[in-house]
């Protein structure tokens, strides 16, 4: 039986009087590579914040690894790469190693310092994203694409079972976006990571993810990526305000 990593039941959420999510239901299974797409204000990032407990649940249920989010405490099982990671303060004086190893903070526990075995784990995580040679470099000296890989390495250092990414390719050039998705594909197919990715970029996600959810406050489409790519141009126009062809021209 395929195990349930995230299960969402009848989830609704409001920012003050404005409904952002209405009666959402979906389940994310082990080794799924799920892309959530939708227009601005559709509630994509809100779902992630609720799953990550950054927002308090108002209505509905979220289960993580079979446990209710209110009781869930194994946060090391979840690696998170936020939208902010793409626009972090690049002047922050920290090396790549310092940033990646900081992912182990909770696991190591309070009042204990990092040791050599933690540094080895850091190098292993950097090897997975192809950046081990940059360990001692200042993170601000790296390109946007490389910086994003550093944040993936930080998320991977705990060997998480679920990787959550919120608009991870904002501000990154197309070549690096392509390489970034290749890395995610490898993590999903070779290392069986479950991936949940929220993005605006329906082109790249359709080519890479195995399953797509399209939403606009509620789920309007939930099927395989192949099915999603068969959506007619007209529907794409309704969703994004342009056709597939138009998007390619741009």
């Amino acid at each position: 039986m395929t195990s349930e990593i995230v299960k969402i039941n009848n989830l609704s959420y409001r920012y003050e009087q404005n409904p952002v999510l209405n009666h959402l239901n979906f389940t994310l299974y082990k080794s799924d590579y799920l892309g959530i797409v939708g227009p601005n204000g559709s509630g994509k990032s809100t779902i992630l914040k609720l799953i990550l407990n950054l927002l308090t649940l108002q209505k509905g249920e979220i289960h993580l690894f079979g446990e209710s989010i209110q009781r869930f405490n194994d946060w090391e099982k979840i690696g998170y790469v936020s939208q902010k990671a793409a626009s972090f303060n690049s002047g922050f004086p920290a090396t790549v190693e310092e940033v990646v190893i900081s992912g182990l903070t909770k696991k190591v526990g309070m009042f204990k310092a990092f040791n050599d075995s933690h540094r080895k784990e850091c190098i292993k995580a950097l090897e997975k994203v192809g950046l081990s040679q940059f360990a001692k470099r200042n993170i601000g000296e790296l390109s946007g694409g490389q910086q994003q890989r550093v944040f993936i390495a930080r998320a991977l250092i705990n060997n998480p079972e679920l990787l959550i990414l919120d608009e991870p390719t904002v501000g990154i050039d197309e070549q690096h976006v392509k390489e970034f998705y290749e890395l995610l594909n490898e993590l999903n197919r070779k290392h069986a990571f479950t991936i949940l990715l929220v993005t605006h970029d329906s082109d790249f996600i359709t080519k890479n993810a195995t399953r797509i959810i399209h939403m606009d406050k509620t789920i309007t489409f939930d099927a395989s990526a192949t099915e999603f790519s068969k959506l007619k141009s007209k529907e794409m126009h309704q969703i994004y305000g342009c056709t597939d062809e138009g998007r390619k021209e741009n």
């Binding site: 950054l54 902010k84 990671a85 972090f88 922050f92 920290a94 992912g103 310092a113 990092f114 930080r154």
Partner: peptide, 23 residues
């Protein structure tokens, strides 16, 4: 600061990540 160094670093570098990691 010695005892809480890694927590203070994580909080300073990325507060949101510190929260999601359960700190």
């Amino acid at each position: 600061v010695y005892l809480l160094y890694k927590e203070l670093f994580l909080l300073s570098f990325d507060e949101e990540h510190a929260k999601t990691s359960g700190l």
